[in-house]
Design a binder for these strands. Structure first.
Lengths: 113, 113
DNA sequence: TCTATATATAATTATAATCTTATATAGTGA
DNA sequence: TCACTATATAAGATTATAATTATATATAGA
């Protein structure tokens, strides 16, 4: 099995606010200010801190346009996560298939009665 | 895009100890006692608490053998995670492909010089 | 039934993450 | 340069998470 990814990716997506931010950025690149407006319950520094964690986790990248920071989804962090989950993928795909075909069989038996 | 998974899955795998436990259980089902022995830095109640979180996240299932609890990897939680990541999968696969082919081109140019 | 084994739960303490408030940096245009 | 806009960082307060210590539950076997 491959080594586990950097801890920051896992803790970055552990927070529901940051997952919502990823969703928001995913539709199209967004400035920090747009993100602040989109999350009225958060303060500007709060948003900025969350963005830093997403940056460190390589889940977003930033480009500078004058004073604005444009946040874009970045594949690296997601790739890391995907690789980690892939370790278990074979296992759970087999198991779920087995479960499904069992349910299938059960249903068939019931229908036959 | 599908809805996000239950928060517990994300926080369950946020902890490196719990990821190590999943790795240990993944090789083959393990009793709670075996897990305690495998993590000498942790106390028995500590292990038990982590196992509870993995249980709640549907990442493991338990079967009872006399006083022993046998922990087995369970696909549900992983499936949930996988589904969440899949939302972004198309995006990052495209991006990484683009990056790779760019590097490919760059390397070719260098070799041509 | 008594004792040992295996594990879980509860309460407390310690540590880490998040939120707030205040302040700093850096670019823009008058 | 000065005021304004956009964003980041620092420090302290709050809250959540993890570890520790003590205790409970449940089964097995003498």
């Amino acid at each position: 099995m491959p080594e586990s990814a950097s801890p920051s990716v896992f803790s970055a997506i552990a927070d529901p606010t940051r997952r919502a931010m990823l969703d928001f950025i995913a539709t199209r690149p967004r400035s920090a200010g747009q993100i602040v407006s989109h999350f009225p319950k958060l303060t500007q520094p709060g948003v900025s801190q969350h963005l830093r964690i997403l940056r460190e986790a390589q889940l977003v990248s930033v480009s500078i346009q004058a004073q604005k920071r444009i946040y874009t989804l970045k594949p690296n962090g997601m790739r890391e996560l995907h690789d980690w989950i892939s370790k278990y993928q074979e296992f759970w795909i087999d198991k779920l298939d087995a479960l499904e075909s069992h349910l299938e069989k059960t249903r068939t038996v019931k229908q036959e009665k």
